[in-house]
Amino acid sequence: MELIFSLIVNGLMLGSLYAMVSVGLTLIFGITKVINFAHGEFMMIGMMLTYIITTYLGIHPYLTLVFIVPLLFVLGILVQKYLIEPLRNSDEHVQIFATVGLSIAMINLVLMIAGSDNFNTPSSGMRHTLDLGLATVLTGQVVIMLCSIFMVGGLHLFLTRTQMGRAIRATAQNRNAAQLMGINVSRINMVTFGIGIACVGIAAVLLSPLYPVNAQTGQSFVLIAFVIVVMGGLGSITGAFFAALIIGLVDSFTGFYLGSSLKGVAVFGIFLMILIFRPSGLFGKARKLAHVS
């Protein structure tokens, strides 16, 4: 019983971490219809910067948010403006390879500069264990859990309650009609991309005290993020949140019962099943994909 409980707690902790990584990806897909294959690399860059700033300035890693989130927001805007937007009317394969190319370039740039070593951001008290009675968790994990809930809730409120948020949703639902309302659709796309990348920046900072980072870190996370985004229904933020929790649980249970190396097979097995049998996601209506993609 205790074991099951601690597996569940661990799964949920892991799940909320995945949720943070995936939210930006699904937002970007939902609005710009682009699958950002370089999403994980933005996180890796964020973690690298967190490491550098924290170790050089000796400040608490969380404080780097002030710097990293705006920086990644701007990076996102630039990528949308100079790479994605010019290709909007191009063939699908061209769009895919644009972000694939970006991903390869970013990974290898970091490899050239920093090599393939792991860098450990100081844990700064975030690796303290908290005893929940039946299970133990780290302080950093609790922070991530709370933040992921705030992030999903905050994005939801932003998209439904603000003028900008509504304009973003309108663009996603009918690009043509949005233009006819006077919405500058390319600006909306840039802002959305920026927000999506900023979200993964927040994830990067919060993850840093718990996970080492190297040039390949982004890849290992982004593959799971793809699984979550498809499972949650492409473009659906709340869908991605719950899918992330499910994948977290699957990860935690299969990791324990099948061994950590085989859990990947379970996760990707689920992914392939969903892609093939339920491409609109676990919670999505079949129709939804039609006007999303």
């Binding site: 790479l83 190319g101 970006l102 991903s103 390869i104 370039a105 290898n108 490899l111």
Partner: peptide
């Protein structure tokens, strides 16, 4: 890899 990535873009 870096060259390939940049060339791809």
């Amino acid at each position: 890899g870096f060259v390939y990535g940049v060339v791809l873009i």
